[in-house]
């Protein structure tokens, strides 16, 4: 268990927050994270977040589904259990298509959703510490890590938050697992 000291400002509107984030980036301030009640348009560019790679994972999972279904049915109906159904050849490719499609979608969806929760550090019963209860309501939070910063630097950050329009500035120690 790791303790983390956080300095954060709460903003009332996502546009004020977005401006503050852009300014903080311009000043090369070390932003810990930004917490919002809903996805803010343009935030990932403002924060300079790398594009999510979830879709690549999704493609791989989907491919796995395609291969599982198609190769599985091929092996079953040509090697393990070759039986003629309705005069069709053993390897009746067109009638394998529906199940191949369904398993592609199934594997991709389950795989991506599970990956999403794992990389987010989420799951049933996981209790990630939050900075303020109103962040899921109507407050927009910009947080800085206090670790390794002198009092002077912290004061500068506090001023920055107030100057950019934060309605409240707080400090909190959270426990990160």
């Amino acid at each position: 268990m790791k303790k983390k000291d956080v300095l954060f400002g709460l903003y009332d509107d996502e546009e004020i927050l977005l401006k503050a984030v852009k300014e903080a980036r311009a000043q090369h301030l070390d932003i810990m994270d930004v917490f919002t009640p809903f996805p803010v348009h343009g935030m990932e560019q403002a924060l300079g977040l790398a594009e999510s790679r979830l879709h690549i994972a999704g493609f791989v999972y989907g491919l796995l589904g395609t291969l599982t279904a198609f190769l599985g049915m091929t092996w079953i109906f040509t090697k393990d259990y070759p039986i003629i159904f309705g005069g069709k050849p053993f390897w009746a490719v067109p009638s394998f298509i529906p199940i191949t499609f369904e398993l592609t979608v199934l594997f991709a969806s389950i795989g991506m959703t599970v990956s999403f929760y794992i990389v987010n550090g989420q799951g049933f019963g996981v209790d990630n510490p939050t900075l303020d209860d109103r962040i899921t309501d109507d407050k927009f939070c910009l947080a800085f890590d206090k670790a390794g910063k002198s009092e002077e630097e912290l004061n500068r950050l506090r001023d920055f938050l107030k100057r950019t329009g934060a309605s409240e500035v707080h400090e909190k120690t959270i426990e990160k697992k």
């Binding site: 977040l49 999510s52 879709h55 979608v105 969806s109 991506m112 959703t113 999403f116 990389v119 989420q122």
Partner: peptide, 27 residues
């Protein structure tokens, strides 16, 4: 599930929603 509303999580969330939507449409 320990949702915090972090910007990175929202980014992944939107990416996931969009791809799930793309998969669910032909489905």
């Amino acid at each position: 599930m320990g949702w915090t509303g972090s910007a990175k999580h929202w980014q992944r969330f939107e990416s996931l929603s969009l791809i799930l939507a793309g998969l669910a449409t032909p489905l």
